[in-house]
Computed example of a mutant assay.
Amino acid sequence: MAQRALVETRQQEKGRQGEDLACRYLEGQGLVVLSRNWTCRDGELDVVAVEGDRLVVCEVKTRSGPAWGRPDEAVDQRKLSRLRRTALRWLASHGVGWSNVRVDLISVTWPPSGEPCLQHLRGA
């Protein structure tokens, strides 16, 4: 049981590091990060940012290697639908009317002994 908790903690830490990297990348691209790890009954948004007049919802997937598949393979149509619903909840909870919303995917592959590789898929 303790071993499993340790593995989950390592995975959570790597996920947080991947989200940190993704936020720095987005800010470097000129986006303004508004929220991180925002949750509601419909789900969680890893990163909510704005690019001009467009709200950008980013799902960040971090993997340490190929054992669990490529990060982008974890996001299917069902997940994308849930992200869109959750984005609408974010807009409502922040008192923002209709907005142009784009859902992006940021894949981070970060091997234990190497440098991270980030890929940004706009409009997933």
Rank of each mutant, 00 (worst) to 15 (best):
D72C: 07
R54Y: 01
G43D: 04
G18T: 02
D53L: 09
L6R: 15
V56T: 11
Q119L: 12
D72H: 10
G95Q: 13
Q29W: 00
P71Y: 05
D46Y: 08
A92Y: 13
R16L: 11
Q17D: 05
V108T: 05
L34F: 03
V101A: 03
A2N: 15
E44A: 07
T109K: 07
G52Y: 06
C23G: 09
L34Q: 10
R84H: 12
L45T: 02
C117G: 06
E59G: 08
G43W: 05
P116W: 05
R41H: 11
C23F: 00
K14Y: 04
W110N: 03
A22K: 01
L34A: 03
R70G: 07
A87S: 15
L80E: 12
D72V: 09
A92G: 10
A67T: 13
Q77R: 10
E8A: 15
V56G: 07
L83Y: 07
Q11C: 02
S35F: 00
G114I: 04
R36C: 02
D72R: 12
L80A: 10
G30R: 07
V48T: 10
S81L: 10
A124H: 11
R122I: 08
L45H: 03
G114W: 03
L80C: 03
G30I: 06
G43A: 08
W90A: 09
D42L: 15
R85W: 05
G15R: 04
S107R: 06
R54M: 13
E44M: 04
V96F: 09
R78P: 00
S99K: 15
S81P: 00
S113I: 06
L26K: 01
M1S: 15
V103Y: 00
A87V: 10
Q29F: 00
